[in-house]
Simulated scan of single mutants.
Amino acid sequence: MSGRENAEFKNALRDIASHAHSLDSPFDRVRCAEWVRKLISLPDDNLETAKVRNEYAQLLRIQVRNRLIHGPFGSSPPDSHIGLCSLPEALGAMIGHQIPFLPRTGRIQPVLHHKSPDGRAYISAKQIPGGGVFVYMAVSPDGLE
């Protein structure tokens, strides 16, 4: 687990804490606290979970600074023992519920993703609906972090 993701998360939490009191609605302040508790409870032992946690924290940070909680934060977070789906998945599902004629979205997940132990290479492959595979590969002489 990278220290950069943890530092980014801690900075977002500090910013949320310093601006949460300015939310107009007491319900929004409670919901904000619930989401912060949920995000803190997520394990940070792998990079994917940390990235999902940071995506939610950054969006909550923006919303709290603008003094308006909406989107996935409009309701309470899922149960504490359930992890969060990625933010794009959650937003896609939310839009799908609001616009009924859009096709339903499924889980967004690569078929394969792997980072080399030294951090110099990354490969991800995802199946394209209707046939085919999308492959992304990155190589760096200095490492990806």
Rank of each mutant, 00 (worst) to 15 (best):
A125H: 00
L47F: 14
N54H: 10
E48Q: 13
L47N: 09
E55C: 12
S124T: 12
G96C: 10
F134C: 14
P77N: 01
E48H: 13
T105C: 09
Y136V: 15
L91R: 11
N66S: 14
D79S: 15
G74E: 03
S80R: 13
G96K: 00
S80E: 08
N66G: 09
V52S: 03
R107V: 08
H114R: 12
T105Y: 00
I82R: 15
I62Y: 10
S80F: 07
I123K: 06
L87R: 06
G74T: 03
T105K: 07
R120F: 05
H114M: 08
L84N: 06
F101V: 11
T105F: 06
K126R: 14
Q98R: 14
Q58N: 09
G92M: 10
P129D: 08
S124Y: 00
R61E: 09
R67N: 12
G92Y: 02
L112M: 10
F73T: 03
L84W: 01
R65K: 15
A121E: 08
V52D: 02
N54K: 03
I82D: 03
S76G: 08
I128C: 04
E89V: 11
R61W: 04
P72M: 06
L91V: 13
G106N: 10
H97Y: 01
F101M: 07
T49L: 11
G132K: 07
A57F: 04
